[in-house]
């Protein structure tokens, strides 16, 4: 038992390391800077300009900017954890031809995938921190690092990590059950972006979509990151709910995502094995 755990742990650590080494984007600094810093910040600024135009300059730009910057910067967890992660797994299959060897190893395949996703999420931490610092200083946002509610932020992010992993692992195996799967990870991340309250409160979504969004753990996670960092100085998506209530909803939504992810994984894994696509993509 202890031995089995030790083996799983060392397999997990190796999968994390493999993820870092095979697709580390910091080996080329220029694309890294553009991708992780300039893109999110310029995206946020464009949205602010649009907001000003739509509200005719009557909106509270600074508040909206703070709302946005938090949403946009923390979104790195989702782009890296969902889209980049899925691309990495598909490249293991199609480009490096190594996926089947990892799949067939005694280490449980989900452990391998959790390891690979962990490496993405840890590298996303760097990107979140950089964007926040640059935006705070450059745009003079009302963020004071000394008054951040770190425990709340940490627990919210931990739950969000678990959700993102459950979602992206299930997604990656769904993609493995198809032969031509590149691009779908990116599309999924974009869809989540729209419906998760990263760039506007979900209350502006049409009814059914708003309901769907309210089931997503990401909405509650972003709400908590904003509350812990800005303390109510920005729009709240759920002004009627206390921090504890939002946290409870996040925990429930996370549990739901994990359960759903597990079911989807089992189904998709069997599909992939049935079709024989673990080692085959459209190029073959």
């Amino acid at each position: 038992m202890v031995l089995a755990l030790a083996r799983t742990w060392s397999g997990y650590r190796t999968a994390v390391r493999l993820g870092w080494l095979v697709s580390s984007n910091w080996t080329s600094p220029v694309p890294f800077v553009i991708y992780t810093i300039i893109r999110p910040i310029s995206g946020a600024l464009i949205l602010v300009v649009m907001y000003n135009v739509i509200t005719g300059g009557r909106g509270n730009t600074r508040n909206y900017l703070a709302f946005l910057v938090i949403g946009v910067s923390f979104w790195a967890f989702v782009t890296e954890g969902v889209s980049d992660f899925a691309v990495g797994i598909l490249e293991d299959r199609g480009r490096f031809k190594m996926l089947k060897y990892a799949y067939l190893a005694p280490l449980r395949f989900p452990v391998f995938l959790v390891g690979r996703a962990s490496s993405k999420l840890t590298s996303a931490v760097a990107s979140v921190a950089i964007v926040l610092v640059v935006a705070t200083v450059g745009l003079r946002l009302p963020i004071n690092p000394l008054s951040v509610d770190y425990p709340l932020l940490a627990i919210a992010c931990l739950l969000a990590f678990i959700s993102v992993m459950a979602f992206s692992i299930a997604l990656s195996v769904v993609l493995l059950a198809g032969r031509d799967a590149y691009g779908y990870g990116e599309i999924m991340a974009q869809v989540l972006y729209i419906v998760s309250g990263a760039i506007f409160p979900i209350s502006v979504l049409p009814g059914p979509l708003a309901f769907f969004a309210s089931l997503s753990p990401l909405v509650y996670w972003l709400e908590l990151t904003r509350r812990s960092i800005l303390h109510g100085r920005v729009y709240e998506m759920f002004p009627g709910l206390s921090d504890g209530e939002v946290l409870t909803r996040l925990a429930l939504a996370t549990a739901g995502t994990v359960l759903l992810g597990y079911l989807v994984y089992r189904w998709a894994d069997r599909q992939a094995r049935w079709k024989g696509y673990i080692d085959m993509d459209a190029a073959q």
């Binding site: 083996r7 060392s10 397999g11 650590r13 190796t14 999968a15 390391r17 493999l18 080494l21 095979v22 080996t27 060897y101 990892a102 190893a105 005694p106 280490l107 391998f112």
Partner: peptide, 16 residues
Amino acid sequence: LLRVREQLWMFSQFYG
């Protein structure tokens, strides 16, 4: 991007 011995070692870790 990996080195020969490094990749082999990594896969040995998936076998415990």
